[in-house]
Amino acid sequence: MQTLKIVVTGPFASGKTEFIQSVSEIDVVSTDRRISSQAERIKDATTVAMDFGRITIDEELILYLFGTPGQRRFNFMWEILSEGMLGFVVLVDSTRPETFREAQRILETFRNYSPVPYIVAANKQDLGDAWPADDLKIVLKVESGIKVVPCVAQNRESVKQVLLELLYSILEVMDQQEE
């Protein structure tokens, strides 16, 4: 049995747990706890260790989706989670510009961990005050050639599209390496 791993990262409350829940065939193994910090009372619970979802590809292959903890005090988990990943998704709440700087920091940190392909998913595009994906590409200083895909983490089709775009990016990198 072979397992592959994709990491879903992003700032606090960017929608990582919902993203994984939308496509996982098991109930997401999430270690959400009630939030204690006043500053982080945007939602009722947050991921304190990691989210863990699964997609069985076939009898011999399983894809795991790992969500990183959103709160800074659990950042030590990031590098552990990034070990051996196939690629990663940086999820950004398009309606909260106050998190963009943090998203950029996370993106750069993960890029430094591993030179794997990645993609940026501009979440909450269904909301009226969402910044367009093209603008996020500029403000997050995303390299040319890296995709910034509009996303609604609660919508399975939208999440599928993000994962597919990441896999297409992985194929493109493989093509480039073979040339």
Partner: peptide, 17 residues
């Protein structure tokens, strides 16, 4: 982190699934 040594076939299987 080390990048997993995967073949194109695996990625295509992921895409199909």
């Amino acid at each position: 982190a080390r990048r997993p040594d995967v073949k194109r076939g695996l990625i295509h299987r992921l895409i199909d699934r």
